[in-house]
């Protein structure tokens, strides 16, 4: 250390106090003997001060416009405040209760699945329980939404999760169209009592659902693309899944 001059890494590390004690000690010893390095260090220190001063001078000149005021957010705070006082306990316990309900339903669904071989009646093979369990989990996640968003995950992760969710909701949307068709047929048979009119009505219902589906897939896709990683985008995914899962279990509720 005493024969060679300090390199750039060591100099910047010394100034920023990022070196370990042993290296720092050895640099101190070198600086005592080397006027060249002392001069270089002084130069760096001067440079560092200049950066701090000029950056602070520029940034501290910036002042927010009057639009950025407390008045602009006080309504939101008041609404939240009201919900705190009224529903504080309910708000805290609801997601837990919903998640527990979802867990219980998924365990029952799993039990049914394990025993599937022993079941003989076809209607028993298609249980709504797993879907219902997902529905409860989604309800719990929507309830919890605003609470953990001050740190965002890495962009690649965000992008992948958003893409998977978008494809997933698009796929469940296709299943929803089938459910809508079945519901239309069930409704016609229940009202009319004849199967003959059910066909055209089902086709019309499917066409309407397909148009709505295309619009929603494109519209929501664009919204998520523009707001990727934002709480509003995640919330829209949750609400979409919630509605989709609800449509999937509708036939079981109707029957």
């Amino acid at each position: 250390m005493n024969t060679n001059h300090l390199d750039h890494e060591n100099l910047t590390g010394y100034i920023y106090r990022t070196l370990d004690d042993a290296t720092r000690e050895s640099i101190n010893a070198h600086l005592l003997l080397c006027p060249t390095c002392r001069a270089r260090l002084a130069e760096h220190e001067q440079y560092q001060r200049q950066i701090s001063n000029e950056l602070s001078a520029t940034v501290n000149q910036a002042v927010p416009s009057p639009r950025m005021s407390f008045a602009a957010i006080s309504d939101r705070l008041q609404r939240r405040r009201a919900s705190w006082s009224l529903w504080n306990r309910v708000e805290v316990s609801t997601p837990v209760a919903l998640a527990l309900a979802g867990l219980l339903l998924s365990l029952v669904g799993l039990w049914q699945f394990i025993n599937l071989r022993t079941l003989t009646t076809p209607s028993q093979q298609f249980s709504a329980l797993p879907t219902l369990a997902c529905f409860f989990f989604m309800l719990a996640s929507v309830e919890e939404f605003d609470k953990a968003f001050y740190i965002r995950p890495r962009f690649v992760v965000t992008f992948l999760v958003a893409a998977i969710l978008w494809l997933g909701t698009a796929f469940i949307g296709l299943l929803n169209i089938i459910v809508v068709r079945d519901l239309a047929i069930m409704a016609v048979v229940a009202v009319d009592g004849r199967n003959a009119t059910a066909g055209p009505i089902a086709i019309m219902a499917v066409m309407g659902a397909v148009i709505l589906y295309i619009g929603l897939v494109i519209g929501a896709g664009e919204y998520h693309y523009k707001n990727i990683g934002q709480p509003s985008s995640w919330k829209l995914f949750s609400v979409t899944l919630l509605v989709q899962l609800f449509i999937l279990i509708l036939p079981y509720l109707v029957i």
């Binding site: 910036a62 927010p64 602009a72 705070l77």
Partner: peptide, 18 residues
């Protein structure tokens, strides 16, 4: 400045709400 106001307002709102 415009983007900074958006980010700062959003951050302050979040901090006060939570």
């Amino acid at each position: 400045a415009e983007d900074a106001e958006e980010a700062a307002q959003d951050a302050l709102t979040y901090a006060l709400l939570n």
